Computed example of a mutant assay.
Amino acid sequence: MSTPDRILAFIPAYRCAPQVVRVLRQFQDPAVHGHFAEIMVVDNVSPDQTVAAAIDEARALGLGKVSVVHNHANYGLGGSHKAAFGYAIANGFSHVMVLHGDDQGNVADIIPVLAAGRHHDYDCCLGARFHPDSRIEGYSPTRVLGNHVFNRLFSAACGRKLHDLGSGLNLYRTEHLRSGYWHKFHDNLMFNYCMILAHVKRKDSLLFFPISWREEDQVSNVKLFSQARRTLGLLGSYLKNPDAFLAREFRDHPVAEYRFETLAKGL
């Protein structure tokens, strides 16, 4: 008899007080929040009212399974992932789902995957903005073109079709994360690129599923041209020595343990 799923929904949040409220509201439907044992907002030392907004909205929704935590330092997006991964491993979750707190993605897009049990057949289920069945609204043509170019470059270099290098809606099997291969990856926005290359190197089983993606009032932290240079540099380092990729230290300031303080639980 198979063990029931125990899925952690992890919402990384930084400077997104208006948006994180809308993200939490995506879980109102019992058909959605019923799939998750815990919904955890991980605030990355936001300078605005992100924490207060998340706590107030979670209380108003009354789902009884929302936690709001605050990183001990500004770890970056990748560092917040690492904090959540460590929590999921330590607390016996079967899977951890990532949904960015800026309200660009929609949790409803992964529910058909979970309801059908398709996630049991894969190490990772990755939301793909550029899947043929995906829908994109308000995304600048420059970013769309840039993403298509990089998807093709990475796919050609890796010998594997990659529909997206890192969207804001992904699901990982916790057992797949247990080795900690991700610990030395970049703590910043480059984390997802490290992850996709690691998936290829490890020969992980991947499901790319279509999602809806939108840009409305989100505040972007991405500087396109500098990000493009860093992404190309990362791909070049992988191609130069794929065998050393998983052991390499990518961080400028290594952190031994990514820790957070729990501000509210069971809301």
Rank of each mutant, 00 (worst) to 15 (best):
P210C: 09
R118G: 07
L263V: 01
L267Y: 13
L206K: 00
A9D: 01
L239D: 04
Y75P: 10
H148W: 07
R229H: 09
G62E: 04
D204C: 05
T174W: 10
L153I: 09
A84V: 10
H70C: 13
E175V: 01
H148D: 03
Y87D: 09
A90L: 14
D5H: 06
N71V: 07
L61M: 15
H35D: 07
V42R: 04
L232Q: 14
P4Q: 00
Y139V: 00
A60S: 12
N192G: 08
G117C: 10
S140C: 01
L234Y: 11
P242L: 01
G105R: 03
H119A: 05
L224C: 10
G180T: 08
A264S: 14
A9E: 01
Q227M: 03
L63W: 05
V51G: 09
K82C: 11
D217Y: 09
W182E: 06
R230C: 11
D121H: 11
A17C: 00
L126H: 09
I7V: 12
D123E: 01
L224E: 15
S94D: 04
P4D: 00
I55T: 09
V42L: 14
G117T: 10
R259K: 14
V41R: 06
A156V: 05
L234W: 10
W213E: 10
H163D: 12
A37Y: 07
S167W: 06
H33E: 01
D164E: 12
S212V: 05
K65L: 02
L61Y: 03
A247S: 13
A17L: 00
R152P: 03
D43F: 11
H35R: 08
L126V: 10
A108W: 02
A52S: 14
D252S: 08
R135A: 02
L263K: 06
W213D: 15
V144S: 03
P112S: 07
S226L: 12
P18V: 02
G266Y: 01
F245D: 12
G166K: 02
N147W: 05
G105W: 09
R59I: 01
A264E: 11
G146K: 08
V96Q: 14
G159E: 09
Y87M: 07
A108S: 14
N91S: 06
H100C: 13
L153W: 09
I11N: 04
G86K: 03
N106S: 13
P254N: 10
R259F: 07
F208S: 05
P30V: 02
N241V: 03
F154L: 15
N106F: 14
T142Y: 00
A108D: 14
I196M: 12
E137W: 04
H33R: 00
Y181R: 05
V219Y: 14
D252W: 04
S67T: 12
F150P: 05
S67E: 05
D243N: 06
F260P: 09
G34R: 13
S2M: 11
A60V: 02
V107N: 14
N91A: 03
N71Q: 12
F85T: 14
A264G: 04
G62L: 02
A247Q: 14
A156W: 06
I7H: 05
V107M: 11
V149H: 07
L177C: 11
G101V: 12
V96F: 02
H131L: 06
G233Q: 07
G236C: 10
S179M: 03
D48R: 10
A58W: 06
L153F: 10
R173M: 09
D102G: 04
L189N: 15
K223L: 08
V255Y: 08
Q19A: 07
E137H: 08
C124I: 15
V107T: 12
T262Q: 15
T142P: 00
